[in-house]
């Protein structure tokens, strides 16, 4: 499998993190996204007319939607360890995967404005992401009452892996972790997953 990758994009990290935790090898093709905007070059627009990364290729299959890529990798995992078997548990997991890939795209946007010269208003994006972190912190507080340490159960799921980068990287756009005690504990648990890897901006101190 080939991942067209830029190390500093959190969506590319999401894919690398899942691949690492499911023990699947990715061949990385590093794209000069910043400042080169190579993902918008004619050659890359042929691969993804939307001009975005990540892009995953597996034989004839080309995927460019983040959730499609993540679900594909999670299903290809021989143990499918991050996909709950029970339909209700799996649906809950997909509910939070949607939150990670759709709602929290605002966090990736805020970070791109702060770090990578993307256009936008970082203060307003930061305020919106703070609201989303509250939703997640409230949810994990309720999960903790049930004795469940992750968003969709007692063990980490695909949704947790997709959510983690947004929180771990939020200091890049000046959203600190002070107000989210449950998220801090959860992020610490995420670091214990076998195969966990970091990216620039996420300290590797364990």
């Amino acid at each position: 499998m080939i991942l067209h990758n830029y190390d500093l994009f959190e969506d590319c990290y999401r894919v690398r993190l899942l691949a690492s935790c499911t023990n699947q090898a990715l061949e990385l093709v590093n794209v000069d996204a910043f400042p080169g905007a190579e993902e918008k070059s004619p050659a890359y627009l042929e691969l993804n007319p939307l001009g975005r990364l990540p892009i995953l290729q597996d034989g004839d299959l080309t995927l460019r939607d983040l959730s499609a890529i993540l679900i594909y990798l999670a299903e290809k995992d021989s143990e499918q360890r991050f996909l709950p078997k029970d339909p209700a548990a799996r649906a809950r997991m997909f509910d939070w995967l949607g939150f990670a890939c759709r709602d929290l795209a605002l966090a990736a946007e805020a970070r791109a404005v702060a770090l990578l010269d993307a256009p936008g208003d970082v203060a307003s994006l930061r305020a919106k992401v703070r609201e989303l972190f509250r939703v997640l912190d409230d949810h994990l507080t309720r999960q903790a009452l049930k004795g469940e340490g992750f968003v969709a159960g007692a063990t980490p799921s695909l949704a947790d892996l997709a959510l983690f980068p947004a929180f771990a990287l939020s200091r890049d756009f000046n959203l600190d972790h002070d107000e989210f005690p449950q998220l801090r504990l959860w992020a610490r648990r995420m670091r214990q997953i076998e195969g966990f890897i970091t990216m620039p901006g996420i300290p590797d101190y364990h």
Partner: peptide, 16 residues
């Protein structure tokens, strides 16, 4: 400044 149980041994947190 924090609930005791939210600061686990071996961890740190910023508060204001």
């Amino acid at each position: 400044v924090a609930l005791s149980k939210m600061i686990e041994p071996g961890t740190s947190a910023g508060v204001v």
